[in-house]
Simulated scan of single mutants.
Amino acid sequence: MTYSLQALVRTAQGKKSKSLLKQGLVPGIVYGHGESNRLVALKRVPFEKLFMTAGESSLVDLNIDEHPSVKVLIHEVQRHPLTGKIIHVDFYQVKMTEKITAEVPVIFDGEARAVKELGGVLVKTLDHVKVECLPQNLVHELHVDLGALNTFEDAIHVRDLRPPEGVKILIHAEDVIVKVQPPRTEEELKAELAEAPEAAAEAVPVVGKEGKEQEAEQEKETSKEAEKESGKKTGG
């Protein structure tokens, strides 16, 4: 699928660029290997819609004003820490003859028999994989068939992925992507519940025999001092 996005040349920089946000625009920058940085502004709503589907693993034709479009990847999206709204976007301009690296999401299809029939718990350890390829070979996502997980001994590894020709996966082939853990037994649940109050009890200091004796001595000393003070006041 081909994605296209319109952008404007941006002149406002630094604190001045914040005024764009009030106008429904998002400041951004375009950079790349051997390319000059270009400041841009994007309409918020069209960009958010595109980003939801394209993500960071799809080529985008970026049209900047009347200039010829350039091929870019959405490289980084910054969000406001409180509102979650997008406040800045980085685009990486690619060269179609140079290899790039990208994080490609893993999509889990189907249902694991070990979950459906054996009551296991699906454990996903990887949801993205790093790949290297020419820009035109970049895939938007890689799929995993959960139907291969029939028992608790089964696991799907990176080596089981089938990327298209020209796409090289850069993480270790033996890394586990997804597996199924057996359900906890009643005994395990009881043991876990029993450990909870024990752990809480360990956190509470317990006064032993020695501690009680020390407390008694302190009480005697306090009592003697109080009697002395009382005698002084009476004598005075």
Rank of each mutant, 00 (worst) to 15 (best):
Y3K: 04
S4H: 04
Q6S: 03
R10Y: 10
A12M: 02
K18I: 01
S19P: 00
L20K: 02
L21N: 04
P27W: 05
G28R: 05
G32L: 01
G34C: 04
S36A: 13
S36L: 14
N37R: 08
R38D: 08
L39N: 13
L39H: 13
L42W: 10
L42N: 05
R44E: 05
P46H: 08
F47H: 05
F47A: 04
E48D: 12
E48A: 09
E48P: 05
T53C: 00
E56S: 15
E56G: 11
V60P: 00
L62G: 05
N63Y: 10
I64S: 11
E66N: 13
P68K: 00
P68R: 03
S69R: 14
S69V: 10
K71G: 06
L73T: 10
L73M: 13
H75C: 03
E76Q: 14
V77S: 09
Q78V: 00
R79H: 15
P81T: 06
P81N: 03
L82H: 10
T83H: 07
I86R: 07
I86S: 11
I87C: 01
H88S: 14
Y92W: 13
Y92M: 12
Q93W: 06
M96E: 09
K99E: 15
T101K: 14
V104Q: 11
F108W: 11
E111P: 04
E111K: 15
A112Q: 09
A114V: 11
E117H: 06
G120W: 04
L122M: 10
V123W: 07
T125A: 08
L126S: 04
D127K: 13
D127L: 09
V129N: 06
V129F: 04
E132M: 10
C133H: 01
L134S: 04
L134H: 00
P135D: 05
N137L: 00
H140C: 00
E141P: 00
E141N: 03
L142M: 02
L142T: 01
L142I: 01
L142R: 08
V144K: 11
G147E: 10
L149W: 02
T151N: 14
T151D: 15
E153C: 02
E153D: 15
E153M: 10
D154A: 10
A155Y: 06
I156V: 12
H157C: 02
R159G: 00
R159S: 09
L161N: 03
R162D: 14
R162W: 06
P163E: 03
P163L: 07
E165L: 08
G166Y: 07
V167D: 04
V167E: 06
I169S: 03
D175Q: 15
I177H: 03
K179D: 07
Q181E: 15
P183E: 02
R184E: 12
E188P: 03
K190S: 08
L193H: 09
A194W: 09
E195T: 05
E195Q: 08
A199Y: 01
A199I: 04
A200N: 01
A201V: 10
P205C: 08
P205S: 10
G208E: 00
E210A: 07
G211S: 05
Q214E: 13
Q218R: 15
K220M: 13
E227D: 09
E227N: 05
E227P: 00
K232W: 08
G235P: 00
G236R: 14
